[in-house]
Design a protein around this nucleic acid. Sequence first.
DNA 1: TCTGGGGTCCTTATTCTC
DNA 2: TCTGGAGAATAAGGACCC
Length: 412
Amino acid sequence: MDAFFASVELLRYPQLKGLPLVIGGGRRRETEMFERLRAAYPETDWGPDSLDRIPVDFFPLLRDYVGRGVATTATYAARQFGVGSAMGLMKAARLCPQAILLPVDFDEVRRLSRTFKRVITEIAPVMEDRGVDEVYIDFTEVPGGQREGGRVLARLIQKSIFEATGLTCSIGVAPNKLLAKMASEFNKPNGISIVTPDDLERLIWPLPCRKINGVGPKADARLQSHGIHTIGELAARERDWLVAHFGKSYGAWLHEAAWGRDERPVVTESEPVGLSRETTFERDLHAVHDRAELGAILTRLCEQVAADLQRKGYLARTIGVKLTYVGFSKVTRDLTLDAPTNDAAAIRRAAGLCLKRVDLTRRFRLLGVKSSKLVKPGTAEAARGDQNGPLPKPRDKAHRDERTDLLFPELD
DNA sequence: TCTGGGGTCCTTATTCTC
DNA sequence: TCTGGAGAATAAGGACCC
């Protein structure tokens, strides 16, 4: 298989080019930011398209931002100060207070994302969706796909995306998805990189292990503790040694990845595994002192999950909650229902039962509701439990936290 | 002074069913 | 009826990704 990896660069503010620019915040706070901007400049239409035309001094500075949130992305001018993706905005403000802070408009991002993918599938139909701004493409069967090792087709895709969206796009071309993804990083933004098996030693092996898609901070730290810093050093280890230290599955996969081997196909269709909604509070909340507020938040999250399920046409067999405590430890609790549902009240009841099994004596900063084990209505799977008698009772009682019953009785 | 929101997949432990 | 074992289902947590 020959694969492309293509990712669009979602930054496109021409008048801000070269300035330190940070885009970020959580979804809710981004909406608030837009509202604040609209209130401050009522004569200006703060739609995403108008951002391009607004004078630089209209934009808020990062130093004026107060609250929780992280940077989604940053320009190179801001990165020079040490600001990067996923960094807390308060920390970013200390590093680069003069940076301009822009909210993300998710509706606009989604619209651009759809256009970007439509343009690609019109040229190369075998495309795997990897999120808003990334896709894999199998161009083995695309007419002309092999010309100049794929470079001609990659240029066509870049040009078409720019014409349709005004966005630039980086493309990696390689024999498989693993290498194509790494190749796409070589030449950002708006570049094309071609990696062949012969390039493994020269281009891939000098890279840090962290560049492998699937090696995160934890795995990287463990590799480093064994003196393995580059992909070449990883490739030099025996497979058996990696399996002994990183497990049968992950160890073997590390070995394959270091040698540039990856047999995964480009997957064009997939069903969602779960749907969830979560929110971080403005301030940390407590089950007793903030009972009414928490109850309202829980209900709203359940209604959102129900609406998402209904809109997308799914029923969920399992409902769960997630809490992030002060200090960032997390807990989750799940409950599998007798019959799958997309009803807000049923989801709220299940979520309430889950909440009864967690320690609510500690303050927490985030509450989430998730649905999983999704089925389509009208299928045999969806009917299971409805017609074939009750399913086994969930193992619920054993975990029940008695303190919570006292603290949060109305959650039933 | 921290650290969003939406996902997927994997591992491990426990329980249930046959 | 009791017991053991295999395998499925459930639950919790964690790593990782965009």
